[in-house]
Design a binder for these strands. Structure first.
Lengths: 349, 349
DNA sequence: CTGAAAGCGCTTACAG
DNA sequence: CTGAAAGCGCTTACAG
């Protein structure tokens, strides 16, 4: 005997009302082949009994589970909450559930995570791929969120444009020498952001790149980044490619007795949870995750609903990049006149 | 016509092998009522065809979906990644999927989230409740992760003991006056942590409580916490009840030119992503989320597998509190001799 | 050891 | 407008 569900089913409603299950089904689904009078009576009775449709029955019959998968490279990434929240919200609005899968670890784990979701019968999935992973079409529609310059990307923040906004902001404040601080040189997202910054520098501005992972390979994990020296060399702006790196830079500078933003400016990306909380609050460029999620989900659902059979395709959206928004807070300010000028100023006093 | 699934089903394997579906089912489920020889042949053929069992069919027949729900008060909470990762891992190990539900917003949203999961047919769920929410038994087993002093809690970190560890650590470093920094006075977790700290203070130590939310009600959100003044008053240790508050304290102190840990110590809770990254790295007390998740999931599954019918109960575990682990990093150090003593010392020189 | 059959709850052509 | 029937894919008593 199958373990029985607690609540009533269509058949119980039907017999108790003296009608057929087909009619009850039609009435509740509102497909309209039932007289409004009867339909109303059925809906009322169903509500009264606390009827909850069986997803299993429906899924078996329709071939659709009503569930989407969300594959993340590493849930521990602080970006995850925003993504998950946005995806869950977009899915919920379309009456879909979201099954999470973490592919922490290598690419193999990512493939396994995807397979597990398929075994669970998801109708489609949203994948935020690991660095440099190419998502191959599997056996359900897939939306990829990475960066527009990654082939096969469905939709993402316009990281390049975000970088340009940071550059324009720093240019406007009079900064000349920018240290760009990234974590991993293989990240498409970070490279796009860095490229955007460089491309947005005004005349007379220059930049240098610092990859933390490379530094740590020689100096050990958790090492100082040597930012005080960089400041002494004349860098006045530290543009991190993520708020986590920005936080690292900010606290290192503060610890070295360098005042932010009086002495130097620090900026980040992503507007993570702590950005408005630290002192000074972080200037950062924020992704519009709600919009990205909305686009990804609607592209996904369009494909799911159109294709009768469950084809494995990477879906595309009309808009594949969503502008980032610059959020100016206290961690960035006007560039102090460089040493030489300061001297001039003092002479002039 | 129901939209057909792409892959083969039991019936296809059966006919292609000239046996019955029942035998194929038995062979694949390994229930052993099939000769090993035939079973092997069937397994081989199934693998060859790339057979993936239909969750829908199985769920409809067995009354179990193989999916658990995870209800979070607010996915944006930085603790979420750790919880989600741990729960997903524990569930995956038991061959269950995890459906997420965010109850951001009020208590109503939490109830709705729970209902939505039930409609999706979860076999059980893990709930991390909103502050001061009492989870009432719904129509499936529920495991609650909050704090041991919350009635109806299934399992949680021993926040009180975590607080005691922090207190012992600060006592050992010679600190006398501790400022405990919390966010919300209604949080059970924060109250337990604060209580633990107070109860763990050694002779001659004293503490004062600072609730940020209260301060912000008058001084506005994002206001300074006035920690420099507290330091001047003689507080040498700032024990935040979460790493987010610890980060806020740390950066405010640094901005005010107070050196951590040379002048004062800062500690946090939860070992969040940035704790090892900031300078100085944060001393913190970490929850063993893996163990908590394991206990919650296994208690949940035990109830699910035992109860034939899907009763709505809050499950209990033998162990309801898991010790926290103190992680000592550079943000805490020996208390500097207080002013009076310093003078003595100078006289003695 | 193996198979025929029932049935989980639903939706959807089809017939009336 | 309403109903009888088939069937989605699976598991599980039951019979042989």
């Amino acid at each position: 005997m199958a373990s029985s569900r607690p609540g009533p089913n269509l058949s119980r409603i039907a017999t108790s009302l003296g009608v057929s299950v087909a009619t009850v089904s039609n009435a509740l689904s509102g497909k309209g082949r039932v007289s409004e009078q009867l339909a109303e009576k059925i809906r009322e009775h169903a509500a009264e009994l606390g009827y909850i449709p069986s997803q299993a029955g429906r899924a078996l019959r329709t071939g659709r589970s009503g569930v989407l998968g969300l594959v993340l490279p590493d849930i521990a990434n602080p970006l995850f909450p925003k993504i998950a929240q946005a995806i869950e919200f977009a899915a919920k609005s379309a009456d879909y559930g979201v099954l999470i899968a973490d592919s922490r670890g290598d690419v193999t784990a990512q493939t396994e995570a995807i397979n597990r979701l398929i075994e669970r019968g998801v109708d489609g999935m949203v994948v935020v791929p690991r660095r440099a992973t190419r998502i191959s079409a599997s056996s359900c529609p897939v939306a990829v969120i990475d960066t527009a310059s990654t082939p096969g990307n469905t939709v993402a923040a316009d990281h390049w444009q975000g970088g340009q906004q940071i550059a324009a902001h720093l240019a406007g404040l009079g900064h000349k020498r920018i240290l760009i601080i990234g974590n991993n040189p293989e990240s498409n997202v970070q490279n796009d952001r860095a490229g955007g910054i460089r491309s947005g520098l005004a005349k007379g501005m220059s930049s240098e790149m610092l990859w933390i992972e490379r530094l740590e390979q020689t100096a050990g994990p958790g090492c100082r980044l040597g930012l005080a020296r960089k400041a002494a060399e004349g860098f006045t702006a530290f543009a991190a490619l993520s708020d986590l790196q920005a936080l690292r830079a900010l606290t290192e500078l503060q610890q070295e007795g360098i005042n932010v933003p009086a002495d130097v400016s620090v900026t980040g990306f992503d507007d993570l949870i702590w950005s408005p909380v630290v002192t000074p609050a972080l200037t950062t460029a924020r992704m519009d995750m709600d919009r990205i999620a909305e686009i990804a989900i609607s592209a996904l659902l369009k494909t799911i609903l159109e294709s009768g059979t469950r084809e494995g395709v990477i879906v595309t959206a009309e808009t594949d990049r969503v502008p980032m928004q610059l959020i100016v807070r206290q961690s960035s300010g006007p560039a102090r006149p460089a040493k030489e000028n300061l001297t001039d100023g003092e002479l002039a006093t």
